[in-house]
Design a protein around this nucleic acid. Sequence first.
DNA 1: TATTGTTATACTCTATAACTATA
DNA 2: TATAGTTATAGAGTATAACAATA
Lengths: 137, 137
Amino acid sequence: MTEPGPDEVMDRLVQVSFTVMALLSRAAAAHDLSLTQLRALAILRDRTPKMAELADYLGLDRSSVTGLIDRAVKRGLVRREASDDDGRAVRVDLTAQAHRLAGELGAEIAELLAPLTRDLTPAERNRLGVLLGRMLP
Amino acid sequence: MTEPGPDEVMDRLVQVSFTVMALLSRAAAAHDLSLTQLRALAILRDRTPKMAELADYLGLDRSSVTGLIDRAVKRGLVRREASDDDGRAVRVDLTAQAHRLAGELGAEIAELLAPLTRDLTPAERNRLGVLLGRMLP
DNA sequence: TATTGTTATACTCTATAACTATA
DNA sequence: TATAGTTATAGAGTATAACAATA
């Protein structure tokens, strides 16, 4: 049978990851969003972080997030709001339109990714989920 | 125990994929390479494709690859060579320096990714590899 | 003084459209 | 005519350095 060595496992993980990213990019592009904007959308679905916190979530410099949010504001996806506790800070909040868009995107992404596990049985899909869960913090 | 539903499995797959991409980006950045340049390097390790073929591998427009290869040439990573069979075509060839770099990067990436499966037993790692293999074409 | 966010600047990545040289 | 590659152009994404406002 297929007996993957340790490096082979990592190779496959990288291959699958690139495939996933390509599919996510395609889903985002269908709504004229970049992968980064898609990530921001996902993060902001259940958070209203300050700019610096959002930068941390995304692993980007604050100055990069300024431009990202500038463009998102221009498209009506987010609002900048003053922070109550800190006069310097700015909170980022998703608009209702963006919440709807995020919902649609979630469904579309689920559909796009589904074929990936097409050849796995439900039990195997389950085992995959468990193993992946053990790889996350 | 952890019984992931179908959407949960996909969520974890996306999470792990983002983690993998972040680690790959970090490995590339340590050598002042972008993720795209890293991909190109990996592809060119065992191929000498024409520009159009490389564009296909990368899923990019030909014009994008022109710039990518321009920058790689400037850094001494690749050479452009005339194609024997087609006077219009250009073959892209990795330099010896780039081959060495690719080797180093491979080892560094293996080290960076290893912690991901730290909590899996060898048998589990194996099963993960098999499942991932079934998700690839 | 330190932190938050922005601006200015520069580079990479990417696509579209127009062009050239060859087929 | 069609294809391979480049150029010109435009916009997104990203980081570094310098800055203003607030803590």
